[in-house]
Design a protein around this nucleic acid. Sequence first.
DNA 1: GAAGTTTTGTTAAAAAATTCACATTCACAA
DNA 2: TTGTGAATGTGAATTTTTTAACAAAACTTC
Lengths: 212, 212
Amino acid sequence: MKSEHIPKATIARLATYIQVLSEFKREGTDVVSSERLAEACSVNSSQIRKDLAYFGEFGVRGVGYYVQDLITSIKRSLGIDRAWNCGLVGVGNLGRALLRHREFSRKGFNIRGAFDCDPYKIGEIVEGMEIVCSRQLPAKVKELSLEIGIITTPPERAQRAANYLVGAGIKGIINFAPSRISVPSHIHLEYVDFFHHFYAAAFHIRFAEHQE
Amino acid sequence: MKSEHIPKATIARLATYIQVLSEFKREGTDVVSSERLAEACSVNSSQIRKDLAYFGEFGVRGVGYYVQDLITSIKRSLGIDRAWNCGLVGVGNLGRALLRHREFSRKGFNIRGAFDCDPYKIGEIVEGMEIVCSRQLPAKVKELSLEIGIITTPPERAQRAANYLVGAGIKGIINFAPSRISVPSHIHLEYVDFFHHFYAAAFHIRFAEHQE
DNA sequence: GAAGTTTTGTTAAAAAATTCACATTCACAA
DNA sequence: TTGTGAATGTGAATTTTTTAACAAAACTTC
Ligand SMILES: NC(=O)c1ccc[n+]([C@@H]2O[C@H](COP(=O)([O-])OP(=O)(O)OC[C@H]3O[C@@H](n4cnc5c(N)ncnc54)[C@H](O)[C@@H]3O)[C@@H](O)[C@H]2O)c1
Ligand SMILES: NC(=O)c1ccc[n+]([C@@H]2O[C@H](COP(=O)([O-])OP(=O)(O)OC[C@H]3O[C@@H](n4cnc5c(N)ncnc54)[C@H](O)[C@@H]3O)[C@@H](O)[C@H]2O)c1
């Protein structure tokens, strides 16, 4: 059914499918039905079939989905069947945690450049990578073919970091700082904010108490 | 219009509104229209009015919203007008970054307990807090009145961590590990997975290239 | 190789979320 | 006090997303 516009929610679910399918694979399961996958992901089974239909036909009727094949197909659909070079701006607490996180490269996102403006941090080695001055961003983006910029600076510096990245020719930005930034429309921008999960928890716990 | 069920998306947006309103406040803006707030949040203005209507009437017709009042009202609506005590299980890279993050307590989520099962880590002090053995969870949850559990263990340990937390009487869990876990239905469970933001970036960048 | 079973892919129906449109309300000025 | 302008709150219209239902396809068994 291949389609044009893909809902954001679909992409988030595809990430979950990959996660759960990988677990199935580790357990030695070769084939899985949409029903069984749906249960493991806590979604409706036609939701899964619909999500997949945006990209093509990956299953076998009467059988289900071959786990490994489906992982491969979803990855190809999302464009993560190849490596993406990333640059991280702001090597503080969070930036360091991300740099040390092996899962990034395992999932195809290689953090190849780490940038900071603090002279005490520049030159330091983190996870085998030297922290470089932000001023060198343009040169490094080209040199390392960086395509995705990760912003982990304090919020008031996020816009500046974004400007550097955009100027350097980055194609997409993931902003972990809690501030809205503006970038040209051809740059893909994602905000990461996990506080809303805490808000949701607080809200629901309180609501449940209120019910009693 | 006060309503029963609140969409997840609404809660995520309310988090954004708080963020942007706080910025307005810092800049000295006292009153803001839904139109202006909408622009800053990149959403539709009636979306904002609808989101707020779930909880009550907070604006003044012909005027707009008083920034400080609206922040207060949203916080009260979400149940974050009081402090929430949290316990963090798994003091690794990510756990440490979260423990060191001041924003948590500023937003009302106080991480009061840090737990790990690694004997080399137990006893260590992080941000003025002693890392405690996971076995002491039940005692500590009661002692410190912990209500929300934060899981930052490796994925294969997340279920066990959840079991401990549930057994200890926690009310909600935020799981940062990339694995599905099961908890009794009265426990509120949130998954934090920011890889889907990377997937979305990769997908859109690639799609844009494909368009050319 | 036909009949039966299973599970997909897809169309149709239902539900939910978003946007529009405007009557209502409030502040302020004449 | 009344009129004017502005912006909220909300019902209705629209769009999007989710769920249900089922025909088409593939495997299994007899
Ligand atoms: N730590 C967390 O757990 C956490 C969680 C959620 C969000 N965040 C957000 O992530 C961001 C980083 O948090 P953190 O705790 O790592 O803060 P941090 O202060 O430890 O690190 C910020 C780093 O950015 C660097 N920096 C500042 N301006 C810069 C610039 N213009 N160019 C390059 N580097 C610059 C600083 O030198 C510092 O190393 C913040 O916006 C924070 O709100 C952090
Ligand atoms: N580091 C990141 O940037 C990042 C980003 C996204 C998600 N995550 C996820 O967060 C989790 C933690 O990541 P990390 O990089 O901090 O890993 P890590 O290995 O540095 O830390 C894991 C910690 O959990 C402890 N632990 C293990 N089993 C435990 C148990 N049963 N009870 C208590 N503590 C236990 C370990 O001793 C260790 O200190 C992982 O699941 C990871 O996939 C990490």
